[in-house]
Write a protein that binds this DNA or RNA. Sequence first.
DNA 1: CTTGTTAGTGAGGTTTTTGCACATGAGGAG
DNA 2: CTCCTCATGTGCAAAAACCTCACTAACAAG
Lengths: 291, 291
Amino acid sequence: MRRGVLPLNALRAFESTARLGRMRDAADELGVTYGAVSRQIRGLEKTLGIVLFDGPKNKLEPTEAALRLVPALTYGFDRIEQAVNKAMQEEDRIIDVSCLGTLSMRWLIPRLYDFHTRFPKIDIRLTTDDGPVNFAKQHFDVAIRVGNPDFAEYEFELLFDDAVGPVLSPQITPDGGISQPDDLREIPLLHTKTRKDAWASWCEIVDTKLPVDGREYEHFYFMLEAVMAGLGAAMAPWVLVRDDIEAGRLIAPFGFKETGLSYFAAYRPRSGPQIEAFVSWLQEQARKTKR
Amino acid sequence: MRRGVLPLNALRAFESTARLGRMRDAADELGVTYGAVSRQIRGLEKTLGIVLFDGPKNKLEPTEAALRLVPALTYGFDRIEQAVNKAMQEEDRIIDVSCLGTLSMRWLIPRLYDFHTRFPKIDIRLTTDDGPVNFAKQHFDVAIRVGNPDFAEYEFELLFDDAVGPVLSPQITPDGGISQPDDLREIPLLHTKTRKDAWASWCEIVDTKLPVDGREYEHFYFMLEAVMAGLGAAMAPWVLVRDDIEAGRLIAPFGFKETGLSYFAAYRPRSGPQIEAFVSWLQEQARKTKR
DNA sequence: CTTGTTAGTGAGGTTTTTGCACATGAGGAG
DNA sequence: CTCCTCATGTGCAAAAACCTCACTAACAAG
């Protein structure tokens, strides 16, 4: 079989299954379902014309041919894996990232650890900054912002759509629960200096009036702490509270409404694969966040 | 980078390009266009965060990182390739195939060489036979027939749709060319004993009448020889004359009309991967034939 | 006989890859 | 310079590969 048509992915699935003994485990290793592994192996048996596994379904036995084949595959894949990892670790470079303050605290920094694991030699130098993007004057490699990206100024990749909604601590939910916006009247509404009209705009969308009398905080971060302490309800972008909602620390009784703005990562054109690797890592994380 | 997410196909494309020096050649080796290779490599640079090629577009230079990475990849892939080939060569078995006479001569046998190259240890024992398929009484592993397959009796895979049309040698085309069925009047129409009504059925489809006066041959094969010698025109299934038309030995002025029948490969259920390998090889060849 | 574990599969959807045609950029000839 | 050729880059649409889901099948253990 010519090298060009080697079914590499199927071979990897087979190698993994043979090494681990169960399709189940192989599926985990490959990050897919076992149905997928099953298909890959069946396909491989077909293209090679070799029976690879015998025995009852709940206890697979590799055939002799499989046993003879596996060691070389394991060796070959190991070799490739090592070489790739080595190459990745030799590439060092510093990436300067400018990111919205709250987003970096509540989304980016917690996830950066993963990036570091994958690209140990790429250092991320993070600056928090909410101002407009200007690559000519600033020396950032990547800038993460929210709004409508400027097509003319820089390359960019969309990360997620901005969506906001009221959040509050489950501890201060009124007895009757919260089923319509008016139920929020009993709860203090908290504000930030930077987006004073957050509640008003939301009220317009859902067609309600609510008293605008709660305390005003310097930063979104402090307001969120207050909300979690049960001091009131806040209008929050989904990305910034996603983790808290998943953990049950906050609830969002009316979900989140899209604002039409987007979070995006801007970067200079043709700035090299490390930057692109970082940006596509951002996209990957964003994709995971959406689900 | 975990083994499960190694971009194996991209790595293969890169290895090939680095080894051969040009994407062009790598594309040939992999059996794709260079656009595909270009994308694979660009994607690899992105996921690894490494610049792999430098220099002007018409003379790529691998970077240092690439040069360090390649040897291990080459070695790993070589190892895998060898192991797979060895495993395939150890699997010997004889497959008994029953095939329509003319089809085996004009389609299957010319292509079997390719199968032999890929599966050196699988022997194909070929019998020509036009009768109905009965696996219970006959000891074939695979039967290739034309008609409507019997879903209840056997497993099968469709190969191609039957389509027939008039063919003749370009040497005997009348001066005015052949643009409508009536132009065939000047040419003797040849027949076979096994499908005497071939011309009549076609005339019905295209709504013409033609004189039925040409010579009758014992076998399709002889008739085709006569056609190529310029003795007249014959009604021929497309698969059987495809190669001749491509080579310019025959022309088919009115194309081919589908008859509603299909060529198919029948085999016993669960007869093992060698049989399945053969059948999917048949399908692959059939797919190529269609284009 | 029921339950739990593991694999196989049909249908359907999503992602990835590819081919095509055109664009781009480098080097060389005139 | 400008034009030409060569090799790669890329937008788009189509095709292929791959995956998930939900369900089924086979076997083992209780």
